[in-house]
Structures are given as C-alpha cells and as structure tokens.
Design a protein around this nucleic acid. Structure first.
Lengths: 216, 216
DNA sequence: ACAGCCATGTAAGTCGTTACATGATTGC
DNA sequence: GCAATCATGTAACGACTTACATGGCTGT
C-alpha cells in the first residue's frame, strides 16, 4: 500500500511517466520510501487497472510507447483514505544492530569497520536530508512548486511544514545513529585496551565449542 | 542472511527447538530482528541441509517429533564470517514518515491520531528496551548467563557491552521518534490554530483537482 | 474434560531485489 | 557515430505475512 500511495501522492502534483516517477524515488520521495523501476512499472499497471490512475499513451518510434499517468478522482479518494488511516508500526528489523549485538565474535578491526561504515552512511544521509529541508523551506523544488501552484494559499503552510517536519525527524534519527556509531568506535577502543594484556586480535570467544555430541 | 545468522547466534548459546527460537524472537533477539515461526521452521530445515546446524529428533506421541537444533563447527564459521563482513545500509523505507509527508490531505484529527499512535508505540519500545538493558547490565537473562558460562571471563565485558550498546542505541533512536511525534502534535495544533479563521477541519487541499482531461 | 502451552508445519500471497533485455531521443 | 539519458518492461529469486492445520503434554 505504501508504494501505491507514494505514487498516487507524486501524481497528485502532476502527471508523470514511470521513468519520471522512478527518478523521484532517487530523491525527494525516495528519501523516505525507496523503490526501483522494476517495482514501479508493474505497480502502475495494477493501479491503472484498479482505476486509480489513467495513462495517456504516446508513440515513440515504431514499437515503443510512452505512458504518462495522471491521478483519477478514485485515486484521490484512495489517497485521502490512506492518510486518514493510522499507520501501524512495523516490527524492528535492523541488520546493523543485529550484527552489532554479536560483535564479540568479530575482530576489533572488523567491529571498527562496521561502526565506521555506519557513521559514514548516516552522515551522508544527514547531509542529504538537510539539503532537502533547505530546499523545502525555500519552497524551490519543482514538485513542491507545482503542488503549491494548484492549492489555495491557506494550505501552503501545512503542505510545507509537514514535509519539513518529516525530514527534520529523519535527520535527528540519523543523528542518533551517528552518535551511536561514534560511541561504538570508542567502545571498541576501550575493549581492545582492556584486553591489551592478552594481546588478542578479538575477544576470546571460542569459534567452535564442545557441542553435546559431535556425532554424524 | 540476517535471520539465518540470528538463529545461529542464538544456537551458539545453547541447543534449542524451533519453538524456543521463535519465543526468543518475541523478546531479546526479536527486539532487534523480528521473525515469526512460519519463517523460522523452514529456515532451520535449510540450515540443517546446509550443515550449519544439526537436529536431534526425539519422538512425541506416535506421529510428532521434536527437533532440538545445535550449531555445528560449520555454523560457527558462518557466524564468524558474517560478523566480520560489513553490513550495507538498507534504503530508507518508513511508512510512518511517508504518510506524515502527506498529512496535508488528512483531517487535523487524523494527523493527531497518527502522531499519538507513533508516540505511544515508541514509548512502549523505549520501556521494553530499557528493561532489557537493565537485565543485561545485571547479567541476568538466561541466554546471556549460558553464553557467559561457556566463555573465558576475559571476553565477558565485550559480550555484555556490545549488547548494551546496541539497545542503548535503539533507545536513543526511539527517543528521537518520541520527540518527533510530540513536535508533530504541536505542529498540528499550530496549523489548526493558524487556519482557525477558516474553520476548516483540514488544510484546504482539494480532493480531486481538474485533471487535464476527465475523459474516459 | 478443558485450557493453556509446547511443538511443527504448509499454502497463498505480497513485497522487494538483482539481473536481464530492449529500444528511442538528444546533443556533441 | 557515440554516449548519455529517456523509457519500459520481464524473470527468477528471496524475504516476509497471514491464515490454516495438526497434534502432544501438563495441570486443574
């Protein structure tokens, strides 16, 4: 449902081709919900079949056709229905945190690399989102301008403020990840220093322990 | 790979049945990586086939058999390989944030309910994780005691500290979500007050706009 | 006898990824 | 002519969800 409604929301701003939609998922929309073109094209077909969007097909060359989708009234209703419905929380599933739980099996270097990567990734995200927030407050992304242009001025603050609030939220969450990674690096240093007497390259957790019976 | 390695890590502490593993995913392990029994049972079979774990089958009644799995040397190697490998960041995909981006289409009440649910969900998570951290620092979860019992004392700090660090990290991230939800509620209030002159129940974003051509 | 937990599975369907595959248009 | 970008798809696979389905054991 999320991909479907993300597409509806984008098309509410202006009609677009699948290709243009896919590109939006490489920035703006994709900063909060990622999707690849191989997922988008079939979904658009299903949405068209469901009457949520309508395609205007134009010929390109002799075989190819370009399909420009626009939202229908039914699509708008669906969008409204979706935003009014409360979104249930998904269960936690963080590969990075899962792995970090078991870093005692890793070498200190591997543990450090893990946190360094995490740090770099989230710093990059913070920068990206911060740039986007700046664009939003200046109201100068193409899509936002189009959306504002077709909306009474009384609604402009709401449109902008909700988006700014979302990206600021993502920034503080990512900032929490940045801090976590930095503290992780300090932790690895501390653990390695603490174990310096032994001079081991990793905490001495045995690889294969005596299992009850090594039969079979 | 994450589910597989989460299972391996659990079995490294002690042999368990699929049922016991599934229960671990309702607490501890499940606090960072959730999985249901219908996912766990087939995965265990595949892991057994791959030689990562070994099952000890015991009869229950005339038809049923109980399978207690333990990790093999190969499984331990796989676990080591996994922790030493860096975990790539997954692309952002947050349904709550996506929806919040488009709350201008929702009524103020719906927007408020959205943030209230988000707030409640994450407060619950914070409480859960904080309780778990306390257990970890006191070193009194069954699994942790078993893991420590079979490990040289020099490694105990690493085992505990990495886990504590993970859950503290999840707590600050969840705390960021809590703050975000609270600020969201304030934002809705502010927007509604700002629009009070009009007395509308939601920002005046038209449901169905004039599409280029309402043909078909 | 019944409830509640222990224990194990399957089936259908959704969602998402990676890789494969093709062709058109624009600008240099 | 070539590269970049525009444009649209399919196929195979893997991950996950929800629902269905069964049976055993323990204590009251």
């Amino acid at each position: 449902m999320s991909l479907r409604c993300a597409l509806l929301a984008l098309l509410e701003a202006r009609p677009m081709t699948g290709y243009e939609l896919a590109k939006q998922f490489d920035h703006s929309a994709g900063y909060v919900w990622h999707a690849s073109h191989s997922q988008i094209y079939p979904e658009l077909r299903r949405m068209e079949e469901a009457g949520l969007i309508r395609a205007a097909a134009t010929a390109r060359g002799r075989q190819a056709t370009k399909r420009t989708y626009s939202i229908t009234d039914e699509g708008c209703s669906e969008l409204r229905r979706w935003v009014d419905e409360i979104e249930l929380m998904t269960r936690e599933r963080s590969a990075a945190h899962l792995k970090a739980t078991y870093l005692e099996y890793a070498s200190y270097d591997a543990a450090r690399r893990q946190f360094e990567t995490h740090l770099a990734d989230h710093l990059r995200q913070v920068a990206q989102w911060e740039a986007h927030v700046e664009q939003l407050v200046r109201r100068d992304t193409r899509l936002l301008r189009q959306r504002l242009a077709q909306t009474p001025e009384a609604a402009h603050d709401a449109i902008v403020d909700y988006k700014v609030h979302v990206y600021r939220g993502l920034i503080s969450r990512a900032q929490a990840e940045v801090d976590w990674a930095r503290e992780g690096l300090e932790l690895v240093d501390r653990l390695q220093e603490g174990a310096a007497a032994q001079g081991a390259d990793r905490p001495s957790v045995p690889l294969a322990r005596p299992t009850s019976a090594t039969s079979g």
